[in-house]
């Protein structure tokens, strides 16, 4: 299985940031079987990184690996939608693994 590189951009320790981190951690643990790297970047501390990645909204999750690159914004509260966005769920008709 390919290793996942996930970067989560947040702005400070807000409840929304905390929720996004918790939701992402849960998804990684249950779905990615440990083959992932999760990086949390606080834009307030490193604004230049947000500039380089052209981050507009926070929280923003970027799946850098494996390709294709995916961007998800929001607190990641809907697990199914996140999985779909990360290409971890195949298209609906082949839903049964």
């Amino acid at each position: 299985m390919n290793k996942y590189l996930l970067k989560l951009y947040i702005t400070g320790q807000t409840p929304r940031s905390e929720a996004a981190i918790a939701n992402l951690r849960k998804i990684c643990e249950t779905e990615l079987n440990g083959v992932y790297e999760m990086v949390i970047i606080d834009i307030l501390e490193r604004p230049q990184l947000a500039e380089d990645e052209k981050i507009l909204a926070t929280p923003t999750l970027i799946k850098e690996l494996p390709p294709p690159l995916r961007r998800i914004i929001g607190d990641l509260s809907d697990t199914e939608k996140v999985l779909l966005g990360l290409d971890l769920r195949p298209a609906a008709e082949q839903d049964n693994p």
Partner: peptide, 10 residues
């Protein structure tokens, strides 16, 4: 893709 609440803090 939008999942849940977000702001333009970035």
């Amino acid at each position: 893709i939008e999942v849940g609440n977000y702001d333009l803090g970035a």
